[in-house]
Design a binder for these strands. Structure first.
Lengths: 107, 107
DNA sequence: TGCTTAATTAAGTTATTACTTAATTACTGC
DNA sequence: GCAGTAATTAAGTAATAACTTAATTAAGCA
């Protein structure tokens, strides 16, 4: 599952925002939401599977942290798409300028 | 619906990529996929509603184009999240350095 | 006018997703 | 060992999402 699909859900987005601030145990995350612990546990699994979040065990706690590289994947897609997009806009602009010049010279 | 949810679907992502290259009629987009016209029409509606794509009518054609500002919203979320994240990493690094200095001075 | 083409809307189906409660696993401290 | 706590897994449900075909809307053109 691509990280974009993982971020489609608003709860998961908020979890990512929380973890951007600092790492947290599963229980601490549960406390931030009006939702059962299993529901959060399932969301965390999706975030882990998508590579956005890392876990380490500390005793019986599972400490979750944001994985910056997971955000990179999303960032890369965005930049790739935007690059094509802005190249196209540049071409359009050049065309408009050329058109403009033609009009002037034909006056 | 936030643009992130709209981009969760791979078909919609490919449509956005296509439109980054150049604007296209609904029919041209349909031709790129192995899927019925109504299915694509519905995807286009989602993309329009999320602000990622614009349409204009030209006779009976609907010409779809990418809306750069829609991508900005996504980009903003990413940058905001990444900013919090990297601030945290900086703080961590400072802490480690301070710790290091303390160790050295206590030797 | 009526036939064709472009696109959307309507209605129904199936798969997936986001939850729930109950049960289970695994550590902690007495 | 066992009661308590942290977290996950299991199982079931309800809402949503992604499609399908059929019907509809609207423009183009002989």
């Amino acid at each position: 599952m691509l990280s974009l699909a993982a971020l489609a859900d608003p709860t998961r987005r908020r979890i990512v925002e929380l973890l951007a601030g600092r790492e947290r145990t599963a229980g601490e995350i549960v406390d931030e939401f009006d939702m059962s612990a299993p529901a959060i546990s399932q969301h965390l699994k999706v975030l882990r599977d998508s590579g956005l979040v890392n876990v380490r065990a500390e005793g019986q706690r599972r400490i979750h942290s944001l994985n910056g590289e997971g955000l990179d994947e999303l960032s890369d897609w965005l930049e790739r798409t935007r690059a094509v997009w802005s190249r196209r806009l540049d071409a359009l602009e050049r065309e408009l300028r050329a058109d403009d010049a033609k009009k002037k010279s034909s006056k």
